[in-house]
Simulated scan of single mutants.
Amino acid sequence: MRVLTVVLSVVALVFGVSSAASATQVRPLPQAHAHNDYEHERPLLDALDHGFTSVEADIYLVDGQLLVGHDPADLRPERTLQSLYLEPLRKRVLANGGKVYRKPVAFQLLIDIKTNGVAAYTELDKVLRRYPLLMTHYINGFVLRGPVTAVISGDRPRDLMASQRHRLAFYDGRIADPNDLGPGSSAALTPLVSDNWTKLFTWTGAGEFPAAERAKLRDIVATAHKAGQRVRFWATPDVAGPERTAIWRELLKAGVDHINTDDLAGLQAFLTR
């Protein structure tokens, strides 16, 4: 299926207010992904202040609301996807002349549906349609880029999403699934492929990266990029130290698109050194 990347000039017109109200001049970091972003003191905002261009929010459908939290015990009625992410992003894009950062850069909102995938996605679809000028759209085989691209992870209703002729979200595939990675899939549905690092590799940053595993990593990235897909791993070491730095260095050298972390300042420092 063909994918046409279109810059929505209408966004700039609608959002065309002075960028003087924009947030700080922080340097956006294309590889920086905030894992479990909502657990930071200021969800989304802390990530933006550190230049992150991808953030992850876990959601549950509770009484018709999309509540954000890692576990059911964490949920609060005021902590909705809209209040923590969609509304702040809308306001920031409005102030920034149609962009999340002053410098044009792709921004990903990774939404992890924890349970009840079909019902939660159905409600999420309704919510995202309230933000048509904020979101990237898929329409009848074409992708029209907006300031923010929503990608669905977790309990993902693939068949439902694939059946939609118009949607405002995309599917997070699995690297280990041949139907998701590479030519067997379409970047118009699956622009991102992710997986658990420990299920694919034995190396955790200590000692030399085994040559066979380095080759495997680079083959994964090459296969994904050839199909227009981006790559992310979770469960990589994330405690400050030489092992984590070694992993991050190999991910960066291999061309992995999103480096997963809970340590916003640590990854920012690494990527800007």
Rank of each mutant, 00 (worst) to 15 (best):
R145M: 12
V11R: 05
R102T: 11
S185A: 12
N140H: 13
V118F: 11
D46F: 06
T122P: 05
L89N: 04
E250K: 11
L86I: 00
Q82A: 14
A106V: 07
T53H: 08
D63F: 09
V3G: 15
A227W: 07
D74W: 06
L4Y: 15
A224R: 04
P210F: 01
R2P: 13
S185K: 03
L66W: 04
D125G: 00
F209G: 05
T204A: 13
Y138C: 02
I111P: 09
L160P: 01
D238N: 14
A32P: 05
S22F: 12
G207L: 08
V143A: 05
E243F: 10
A34N: 03
K91V: 05
E123D: 11
N179L: 12
G51K: 07
E208G: 04
A206P: 14
H50M: 10
H137L: 08
Q31D: 04
G182D: 06
S83L: 14
N140R: 14
R130W: 06
R158Y: 15
K91P: 01
Q82M: 06
G182I: 01
E250I: 06
D262Q: 09
D172A: 13
V26P: 02
N196S: 05
I59L: 03
G117I: 00
K226T: 12
L44C: 03
T24A: 12
W234Y: 08
P132V: 08
G184I: 03
F170Y: 08
V17T: 15
T190Y: 08
S186T: 14
I247W: 03
P210Q: 07
L264Q: 04
A227Q: 06
L89W: 08
D112I: 05
D112Q: 07
P72S: 07
D155S: 14
H225Q: 06
A269H: 12
Q229C: 04
S54F: 05
L267R: 03
I247R: 03
E78Y: 09
Y60P: 00
A162K: 12
T245I: 15
T24W: 15
Y85T: 03
P88E: 00
R130S: 14
L124V: 00
P43A: 09
D238A: 05
W197T: 02
P28V: 01
M135L: 15
A119R: 09
Q82S: 12
D238P: 15
R165V: 15
G117M: 08
L144R: 13
Q229T: 02
